[in-house]
Design a protein around this nucleic acid. Structure first.
Lengths: 154, 154
DNA sequence: CCGACGATTGAGAACGATTTGCAACATCTT
DNA sequence: AAGATGTTGCAAATCGTTCTCAATCGTCGG
């Protein structure tokens, strides 16, 4: 009973399940990238040629409010959307290609909580993006010696 | 010879130094918060009642391009500006009061670089914000036992 | 110190992303 | 199946930010 679709979870959470919202949910589930509203809109139009952009925005907001999806801001000023995964991950954005790599690092998660705690706060959420450029192969191999616990995207 | 003003550094970097830019620089230097363009504009108007918002934006962009100031995005969609400090710091945003606390954590800096390296990238920049709410005093004292290296804002 | 030329300014229009007003319509409850 | 309520589509409105353009200023060569 783990694989409930976003649309199902939307209904379970008390949200109204409409055809348009089902479509937006389906688009998000099928998207492996981090699409913005416009792109989600374009993809949604393939399933419903008359769905409105405003509806996409409203559906996305509903899903965000219900904590079913999360937003990202990768510097270009577009809000990107992604299904909220159970295990949190952060992003590394390649400054030369724009490619986005997801990663999860337990050490980092722990450190973030500790920092907040030391400042007198309990961590509610956070946002982290690394911006980097591909390293030379030399540097890579050199660096690979230092274990950090960073893992490839799931 | 360390305390050159932003305006001076702007000139030294080859940027054109105008009255308006001097004012924007002065506003930034006096601001202890993280003002957005609109707020900087309001403050600048106190020194020059006819400076234009567009000029503020243009001055800010010039300063960002010359690496004299940095931008932040704390979730509300406003770009905030801050003088670039020598030693990097990140931010913790209080979700209940909106207060922004700066902190610097060497462990975190190191970890970020390592993570990027392990993914095959050399870290160019990054963005990190923690969002938290004030913890109970109990929790605070309990947490304070775990050393993290987090330091209070400078 | 002055004049020329390119850069900057002010004002408002223009922009792109996102939101909103409203009438028609679909959904969930009973 | 009917009604109350939430949602949709469309267009107009907003918000932050950038651009256009004529007027003006800063900087550099002389």
């Amino acid at each position: 009973m783990q694989k409930r679709s976003i649309a199902e979870r939307l209904g379970a959470a008390g949200g109204m399940v409409t055809d348009q919202r089902r479509i937006v949910c389906a688009v998000l589930e099928k998207s492996k990238d981090h699409p913005d509203a416009e792109l989600i809109f374009k993809r949604a139009r393939k399933a419903d040629s008359k769905i409105a952009l405003a509806t996409v925005y409203r559906s996305l907001k509903a899903l965000v409010d219900l904590n079913l999806i999360v937003t990202h801001d990768f510097g270009d000023n577009r809000t990107r959307y992604e299904i909220k995964d159970d295990d949190h991950h952060d992003h590394l954005v390649c400054v030369s290609s724009g490619k986005v790599i997801e990663f999860h690092n337990p050490k980092l998660e722990k450190l973030k909580r500790e920092i907040a705690a030391r400042l007198g706060y309990s961590l509610e959420s956070h946002r982290l993006e690394l911006y980097g450029r591909p390293a030379d192969v030399d540097e890579q191999t050199a660096q690979r010696k230092s274990e950090t616990g960073a893992s490839k995207p799931s």
